[in-house]
Each structure stands twice: as C-alpha cells, then as structure tokens.
C-alpha cells in the first residue's frame, strides 16, 4: 500500500481522537460515577401494574436517611404522579414504567433522561444537591397528544420537606349538651419517628397535644369537644400539625323536642 506520510499521521491522530473519546466517557463513569440506565429495574407485565407492589400506589417513598424512591407510571399522556416533591441533599431512585406505549421520562435541563418502554422498569438514581424546580416531559412520540405529556419535579430545601399527612375526622353537627370528637390522623411517610404537636383551635380555645408518630406509620389524636363549652351556633375549628392545616365547622344545634330540657347547664 502506498500511503502518504500525512495520511499516516492523520490515521494516528484519528486513533488518538477515538481512544480519547472512549477514555472521556470511561472517566465519566468512573470519576463522577455516571451510570447508564440498564436492566437493573427488571421487567413487568403492563397489565399487572395495578397489582405491583411498587406501582400500585406510585409516588415518593422514604427509604431511610437521605434516600428516597419514586415510582412513576407513564401512560398516554400523563405521568402518575404528575407532581413529584423530594428534598434537596437527597439521593432519589426513580422507577418508571409504562402502561401502554413507549414514553420517556426526561427532567428538562438536567441529565436525568430515560426511555420508558412497556414491559420494562427504568431504574435510575439521582443525587439532588440543590433545591430547584424542574419540568418533566415525554420526548418519545406516544400518540396524538404526545406534546401535552408533562410533569413537575420540585426539589425543596431540606428543612421544608416532610412526608407528613394530616387528615381529620369530625362531625358536622352536635346536639347541644353532647360531646363530640375531632380526630386528627397524622401519617408519617419518613422512616424516622416524627415528634410533633397537634393543635386544635375551636371557639376561642386552643388545645395542644404532643405526639410521636412512628416511622412509616400513623398516629391518631382525638380531641373531645364538649358542646356545652361552645354554645349553640357554628364554630370554626382548625387542626394544625407543622405546616399542615385542616379546618371545618361544627354546628351546635338545639336538640329536637323535649330533649332540650335535658340540657339546662348554663353556659355563661
């Protein structure tokens, strides 16, 4: 073969370029520790997503420490959940699967981007150091309203994040003279115990009760309310736990007929 010297030099330079590219990519995997989406997520029958332990109730779960798992189900043309909230300084593993066709789960403006293929679970771990708000979009064509498929990922400051949920059970009305109960149910999604205070404001009274909600559990706090203390009429109440509030109105009504005679306690 009759190869010109320059061409030989270029051949060597081209090889150096190629090896340099492969070396850079390898550095990315070893140095910053970038991992590819792979077969770790396993497979799943799309018809059985609703029975799946992870995907039956998609959403954020606390694993422990600063580790979280987020299960997401993609389908034409939405994500469930569509809003995801995780704390900053966390390590979040996403599990994404599709109910119907091929989608993607792409966090805009980041390197978090995976195909979502029916039958497969995409698993990826991401460290969120800083708070931020990101859009999520589907970048694989998935049908005629593909362009409407989007979601939101909020990385909130660590001290603003919790996984507490408050629900309150209370009667709408109570007969004057009877007692009723307002029950606050505090759920704690974090693995650690949650020590907090549940407070009830009703009328001009505020009651507080300290409570320890076990990790990944819930605790009920029942406040007994005596209608006699309130008097007849509508009374607004508010139950507060940390930043969560639930409020309602309790009506104290006059008992029907002769039962009113039963009362008689002065309310002064």
């Amino acid at each position: 073969m009759n190869i010109h010297t320059y061409e030989k030099v270029w051949l060597v330079a081209a090889m150096v370029l190629i090896v340099g590219f492969i070396a850079t990519i390898t550095y990315g995997a070893v140095g910053p520790g970038i991992a590819m989406i792979d077969d770790e997520g396993g497979d799943i029958n799309p018809d059985e997503i609703n029975d799946d332990e992870r995907f039956a109730e998609p959403g954020v779960e606390h694993v422990g420490g600063n580790e979280y798992e987020v299960a997401v189900v993609a389908q034409a043309w939405s994500y469930t959940p569509s809003q995801i909230e995780v704390p900053a300084n966390s390590e979040v593993t996403f599990y994404v699967t599709s109910r119907d066709v091929t989608h993607s789960f792409s966090v805009v403006g980041t390197n978090v981007n995976t195909m979502v293929i029916p039958g497969q679970v995409s698993e990826m771990t991401v460290k969120f150091d800083e708070p931020g708000e990101y859009g999520i979009l589907c970048n694989e064509y998935c049908g005629e309203y593909h362009h409407t498929m989007e979601g939101k990922l909020n990385v909130v400051p660590e001290d603003e994040f919790d996984m507490t949920e408050l629900s309150v059970e209370a009667d709408d009305e109570v007969e004057s003279g009877n007692e009723t109960t307002i029950t606050a149910n505090v759920e704690n999604g974090m693995q650690e115990d949650l020590e907090t205070t549940v407070s009830l404001e009703i009328g001009d009274e505020t009651r507080e009760e300290a409570v320890t909600v076990p990790g990944d559990g819930s605790e009920e706090v029942a406040f007994t309310v005596d209608s006699a203390d309130l008097g007849e009429g509508d009374h607004d109440w508010t139950v507060t736990v940390d930043d969560y509030e639930e409020s309602g109105t309790l009506s104290v009504v006059t008992p029907d007929g002769n039962e009113s005679a039963d009362g008689g306690d002065g309310d002064a």
Partner: peptide, 17 residues
Amino acid sequence: LGNGPTVVGMALTVVGL
C-alpha cells in the same frame, strides 16, 4: 457535566442499604 443532576451509579445506594 455542568448540566446536573445526573444519573449516578447504584453502588452508593447498595452500601447505604
């Protein structure tokens, strides 16, 4: 690399668990 967050390996998680 300036476009983080980026998908990282599972090694750390495994150790954590």
